[in-house]
Design a protein around this nucleic acid. Structure first.
Lengths: 231, 231
DNA sequence: CTGGCCCATTGGCTCGACCACTTTACCACC
DNA sequence: GGTGGTAAAGTGGTCGAGCCAATGGGCCAG
């Protein structure tokens, strides 16, 4: 793992730079959908790169839906760059686990999930949550950090909310949630503490106590966040 | 324009075919995130195409977020292809405005946004929110339903949270939020009532009262949901 | 055990060549 | 004037060779 404060040096491929340059050109020239870009050979000459790199950039832009490429005719702007807001996936990928905004989003989403889980949990939901906690406890007793059980527990709470849109939203957040949990759990004392709080959350969900489940989850997220962000 | 019944013959670029073939391979081999693909030269040989075409396909897949390409090391599956089904977008598209789950998600996200807005709002944020309410009020006084002002207000609250991830998440939800608000506001009495509650929310945000802002927003969402779902 | 070096492999990029398709211009014929 | 045919120029698509930068693993010396 990288040392605290040191980040891996990321070097963008040339085609990414070219695509960015083209995007800026489109915006600065105020091009409209339907407008045609310069030919590949011309772009390569003006940008001082090979045509292959230009083509790769155009491929990327095509996949993003920015341009429409017609063989023999040229590349045409399909959608203004402004329409292509940075995707959630991009935000997820660049988010660092010690950045507070991740935890804030988790709080919004998972507290709501806990509340809904308390309202809608089935026996199967409760069993899945219990099982996850047993897995987590077994790992911790064996000297591990309980990461797998932790992930299963959080996912089980989301599932117990029985809100497909919320589930999909969490799926979109993908690795981010897992990464933040892993980092938190590896800190001294965090794993047993998390397990204890998970049990409290489960008890509140089982008791169908919505405010309690929400509050327990909120505190859990806040504690974990504090351990990572300040630690 | 083509005659009725006759469609333009579309021919996919080779790299699109290659990307599709790779995607099928990933699925049929049940590859997991972190698994490494074959090297470019190997893929080119097995697929009987040039390495350039393979590279273009990999570029496309990289832009889609499917793979992570590391120079010197190889290309690694980042997300399963199934994840790239616009699942959230699909859920958004098919969600009906009177389905409770939309409102539940809105509650989770927008209550958190209101809380954070109360913590972080700037003078510019407050001005934007006020302006939105003025627009909304003007529309209502003129017999309209205040939809534009409503949308601007909610967006301004999200922006005032100053959490980029949360903003992106709301962007992903896209039309859904707007649609639910529009339906709600067109119901008798809803527009003036919403405007009044918006003002309360703004007051709490201005007062930097996080719990109050959160609670006001929660009630606002719940009221609106009740008017649509039960109405 | 650690650090340095070497080598094989991998992706990144350039370049030139050729092919398929599109667009434009021109001409002949009705 | 309208239609069809042809040629040339321009555009994107694909191929393959070559070389460089980065990565990962193995080996050896201190």
């Amino acid at each position: 793992m990288a040392e605290p404060g040191l980040q891996p040096i990321e070097r963008s491929p040339l085609y990414v730079v070219v695509a960015e340059r083209l995007r800026n050109f489109i915006e600065s020239e105020n091009l409209k959908p339907g407008d045609r870009l310069l030919p590949e050979r011309e772009l390569a000459e003006q940008l001082g790169v090979s045509r292959t790199s230009v083509r790769q950039a155009l491929t990327a832009m095509r996949v993003m839906g920015l341009i429409d490429v017609r063989p023999g005719a040229g590349a045409y702007l399909q959608r203004p760059p402004a329409d292509l807001v940075p995707s959630l996936a991009a935000e997820v990928a660049k988010a660092e686990v010690d950045h507070p905004m991740i935890w804030e989003v988790r709080e919004g989403v998972e507290v709501q999930a806990a509340r809904l889980a308390a309202r809608r949990r089935t026996d199967a939901d409760l069993a899945a949550m219990s099982e996850a906690l047993e897995l987590m406890a077994g790992s911790i007793e064996g000297g591990g950090d309980g990461v797998d059980g932790d992930r299963l527990f959080h996912r089980a709470v989301i599932a117990a909310a029985h809100n497909e849109l919320l589930s999909q939203l969490v799926e979109e957040l993908g690795d981010m949630v897992d990464r933040t949990s892993e980092v938190s759990l590896t800190l001294p004392g965090r794993a047993p503490r998390s397990l204890a709080v998970h049990r409290e959350i489960l008890a509140a969900i089982e008791a169908a106590d919505e405010p309690e489940a929400a509050e327990r989850m909120r505190r859990h997220i806040a504690e974990s966040a504090n351990s990572v962000v300040s630690g």
